[in-house]
């Protein structure tokens, strides 16, 4: 039986658009791209090629995810414009994400210029804590905003991998250790995402549209 509580109706409609598993796949894909970059790093490729590879993989992934949403998710869930307060919260979330990207870029710039400017960098643990905050703040914000607590698992995986990288220094202790750590984390996120996506495709069939996609339009035109 459908709930008639307005808050439940709105929440269920909103959650339906976040629970197709593709966001989990997106996180897994990002970590997989990081694993590829870690392999290139280990092979001694120049930094520009690693950045180019990461950029291409990230764009490719976003393209594939958008296509899957358009091709398989949208026909099942339909289209909806949410209420203005949801739109306002989306805007606030984008501002938070932009601020985190800016913070990350500032950290990278600071690290690069630290020797020239004579700035003392924090130790490994301090660096890891800062990076963890930069990762977890937007992920926690997204999880809360999208009503999607599972995102915290992916954020946690990122933070663990960074700990292995920065504090434990896994890449120098184990051949391809960085790629291995990212690969394991990516596999977990991808397994979760693909599982949820398959379940979504099975449990949410395309609705039967009777006389065809325009049946209702036709009936309205006829009246």
């Amino acid at each position: 039986m459908n709930s008639i509580r307005l808050r439940d109706i709105e929440r269920r409609s909103w959650r339906a658009y976040q629970q197709d598993g593709l966001t989990d796949v997106q996180f897994g894909g990002l970590m997989l791209a990081a694993a590829v970059v870690a392999i290139l790093d280990r092979l001694g490729t120049p930094p520009w090629s690693r950045i180019a590879t990461l950029t291409v993989l990230a764009f490719l992934e976003v393209g594939v995810i958008l296509w899957m949403r358009w091709r398989y998710v949208a026909p099942r869930l339909g289209a909806v414009k949410f209420a203005p307060w949801r739109v306002r919260r989306t805007r606030a979330m984008r501002i938070l994400l932009a601020a985190c990207v800016l913070a990350t870029a500032s950290l990278v710039a600071l690290t690069s210029l630290s020797k020239g400017l004579g700035i003392a960098l924090p130790g490994d643990l301090g660096a890891w804590l800062i990076i963890s905050a930069v990762i977890l703040v937007p992920v926690a914000g997204l999880a809360m905003f999208l009503d999607y607590p599972r995102l915290l698992v992916h954020g946690g995986l990122f933070v663990i991998v960074e700990f292995l990288h920065i504090v434990i220094k896994l890449p120098s202790r184990l051949p391809f250790g960085g790629a291995f750590a990212y690969g394991v984390a990516a596999s977990i996120s991808l397994a979760v995402g693909i599982g949820v996506y398959i379940r979504f495709l099975r449990t949410v069939p395309r609705p039967l549209l009777g006389q065809g996609a325009n049946a209702l339009e036709d009936s309205h035109d006829a009246r």
């Binding site: 008639i4 709105e10 869930l77 414009k81 609705p207 549209l209 009777g210 049946a215």
Partner: peptide, 27 residues
């Protein structure tokens, strides 16, 4: 009406999925 009240607008597929109505019922 409750579904349409909590959103700005929605298409038929969305309404069918969220109410479990058939195409004929919805129409």
């Amino acid at each position: 009406v409750a579904h349409l009240y909590v959103v700005e607008s929605a298409d038929y597929v969305f309404l069918m999925q969220n109410t479990d109505f058939t195409w004929g019922n919805l129409s």
